[in-house]
Design a protein around this nucleic acid. Structure first.
Lengths: 210, 210
DNA sequence: TAGATTGTTAATCGATTAACAATC
DNA sequence: TAGATTGTTAATCGATTAACAATC
């Protein structure tokens, strides 16, 4: 049922989910597709279309009920279950993420950190269990880790990713500039900062020199 | 000329640029569209099509010359000029980025860091000039800062973004989950970690329950 | 009810894929 | 030259936009 939602629509619905949570916290109870479109910077059409992909959406002639919509998205997207995650590579970026309160539990819970530097692991203070990199595969299996954040240097990225894959990881958020090779069963999202910088400056340059 | 390149193509070309730089460093001089497609995980068609958007691309019946292609992309996308950037919000994530060697200069140079916590600014050791948040607009103007990385708490994101915009910023990489309101002249790229987590787990969930 | 806003169908738009002639 | 690979045109595919009947 609901067959398949286009990828861009999934991404927009995730943003919508965040927006709805914010609205809910500010006490708003109902919201129209046009108001949501305004906030998201897309057309009201687009908002309604995206929401329609979710299937039955008990709504009316007076906008959406914020909480109902939040629940609907959470249900169809599986946001209600806590996801078990880990961080691989505990440099500046990795340890910054490891210590984010947001990932202590709730939607996403970081349960393990990995690094190839054993000294670092032994001296680092963290509420999260830390392991040497050679235990990645085994630990991912044992702790049933589903998602991983990859923040290692480029040179080791593919090898480390392979260990995660061998352990049965389901998805990887890749902070390295390396294009990770993974079977189609493993999803990879790239959030490389240099890459984002380049896209941004390319778009600006193309606009000026078109 | 070359009118407009589709956004997805621009993004792929930026990734391609990275791949080509890696190939070049490993000493490879020529590469075919099918080999590039293999690495990038897209069809050879797609690679050739994307490259063709760049306009004249002196190539042959024997693949692309790696260095020539790097130079062509850099030229058309404006990668040869150093971009002046800053980091706003010097928490764990912001200071991790501030200290990345990659942003000391070359393609992107972080020349300033901002935070509302004045104590932090005075005690933090950094090779980069640090300023209080209320000097954002003035400093962006004065230092001709083009791009900004936004790593402040959600609550202050829009206000801080507005100061950047007032200072004449051209692009923002937004690490917060907030949807930033900006005039169409200012480009915003969102790289929110929680959002990425959600997209990943939504796609996995939808695949299992479709 | 009447007004407003949705859900959905149809039409447009754009990007990707395929195929093939042009080129080295 | 012959083989290989590109650049580009045409065809397909999918997503977005528009419009409107259905609904509260």
């Amino acid at each position: 049922m609901a067959s398949s939602i286009p990828l861009p629509a999934v991404a927009r619905l995730c943003t919508l989910y965040q927006v709805l949570c914010d609205l809910n916290e500010s006490g708003q109870q109902r919201v129209s597709s046009s108001a949501l479109g305004e906030i998201l910077g897309v057309g009201a059409h687009n908002v309604r279309k995206d929401i329609s992909y979710l299937g039955e959406t008990a709504s009316a002639g007076g906008g959406y009920n914020v909480i109902n919509l939040i629940e609907l998205i959470a249900l169809r997207m599986g946001f209600n279950r806590e996801k078990v995650t880990c961080v691989v590579g505990l440099g500046h970026l990795g340890s910054a993420i490891l210590h984010h309160e947001r990932f202590r539990g709730g939607e996403f819970k970081i349960v393990a950190g990995f690094d190839s530097n054993i000294n670092l692991i032994e001296t680092m203070h963290s509420g999260v269990n830390l392991f040497p990199a050679y235990e990645i595969t085994e630990t991912v299996k044992k702790m049933h880790i589903e998602l991983a954040i990859l923040t290692v240097p480029s040179s080791g990225a593919q090898e480390v990713a392979q260990r995660l894959i061998d352990g049965g990881i389901e998805g990887i958020i890749n902070f390295t500039p390396v294009v990770i090779k993974a079977p189609s069963s493993v999803l990879v999202r790239n959030v490389d900062l240099t890459g984002e910088f380049r896209v941004l400056s390319a778009l600006l340059h193309l606009r000026e020199n078109n």
